[in-house]
């Protein structure tokens, strides 16, 4: 495959004028689709070819729920490469960068699980950054029976963004990264040429929400929906669901200068600590209240009841 691709690129420049029309049709590798558009593209500018490859991996000691989420993402992105778990101690260093380089990838999704309960997602563009670290919330995997949709594996998704992605620079950056990572490259060899699902990325409450829907629309032909079919279109949720809370944006890949810091972010550790402290105070409070009550009773003793022995006889 790699060879053929190289060949196509090399051939494009010199052969453009003389031998472009009688090119053999080779549909298996997407040759046929790629070829006709190239002359028109290259006449205007250099050909754009999306060669995005995403490395997906996770830290050790990830729990099953988050691992399943990762596997779901793997099944949604045909242009990804899954790697084995990485020791979380090493994730700070350059190990991951090396790994990305080794696997020839241009971006990375790294699922980092801490304390078996907190999931962080690193979204990284490889050689020169940037990288975004998210806290992942509200995880629902595809295995849940509530999500009844299904779609082709490897069909290219439509990406919908809410417009508030364009308001702030950091959201703009996040949007661009999401587009590059989650959009399946056109004519990718593992992708299928139909569009039957749609991703939703929406910012609500300063979190990025992700949803995946199957598109079901009445049609008889492959290049046209039926008349009025667009109105009859329905969506069925396929899953997974998750919600990303951005923590920091770094300049480099897995590190570098901090470009953005979420001012509202409180780490789950702090929350838990606070909760614990609250619970710890409970007993002390109870004891205090008891002593206070005792003191109160001592200081205001009850008057002797004059009717106490009225019914004794």
């Amino acid at each position: 495959m790699g060879k053929k691709r190289k060949h196509a690129e090399a051939a494009e420049a010199p052969k453009k004028d003389d031998s472009a029309p009688p090119r053999p049709k080779r549909t298996l590798t997407g040759w046929k689709d790629g070829e006709p558009e190239k002359p028109s593209d290259s006449s205007a500018h250099t050909v754009f070819r999306n060669k995005e490859k995403v490395l997906i991996t996770c830290s050790r000691r990830i729990n099953y729920r988050y691992r399943h989420l990762m596997l779901n993402v793997v099944s949604l992105l045909p242009h990804c490469k899954k790697d084995s778990k990485v020791e979380s101690k090493e994730s700070k260093g350059s190990t991951l960068n090396e790994l990305i380089e080794l696997r020839n990838c241009s971006s990375c999704l790294f699922f980092e699980c801490r304390k078996q309960k907190d999931l962080y997602l690193w979204m990284v563009k490889s050689p020169s950054g940037p990288s975004v670290k998210f806290l992942v919330n509200a995880v629902h995997t595809m295995d849940e029976l509530k999500l009844t949709g299904n779609h082709l594996k490897g069909s290219r998704p439509l990406l919908t963004f809410s417009t508030n992605f364009d308001k702030e620079p950091h959201w703009k950056l996040v949007k661009e990264m999401i587009t590059q990572i989650f959009a399946t490259p056109k004519d990718h060899r593992k992708s299928k040429p139909f569009h039957d699902h749609v991703f939703v990325f929406s910012i609500l409450d300063d979190h990025v929400w992700f949803r995946n829907y199957q598109i079901s629309v009445p049609h008889n032909e492959t290049d046209k929906v039926d008349r009025g079919g667009l109105d009859k279109m329905t969506l069925v949720e396929v899953g997974p669901r998750f919600c990303l809370n951005p923590i920091k944006i770094f300049g480099g890949s897995f590190g570098g200068p901090t470009l953005y810091e979420n001012p509202f972010y409180v780490s789950p550790n702090q929350i838990r600590a606070l909760e614990k402290r609250k619970k710890a105070g409970k007993y002390v409070k109870k004891v205090k209240a008891k002593t206070r009550r005792k003191i109160h009773e001592m200081s205001n003793a009850l008057e002797p009841d004059e009717f106490a022995d009225l019914w004794k006889e």
Binding site: H45, F161, T163, K172, Q180, P185, G251, L259
Partner: peptide, 25 residues
């Protein structure tokens, strides 16, 4: 810095829509 990075990584301006398949709502 953010905008600079965005420029660094973003695809060329005149990329056809079919490559991105993005829609704003």
């Amino acid at each position: 810095g953010l905008l600079e990075k965005l420029e660094d990584i973003s695809w060329p301006e005149n990329v056809e829509w079919i490559h991105k398949l993005t829609v704003d709502h």
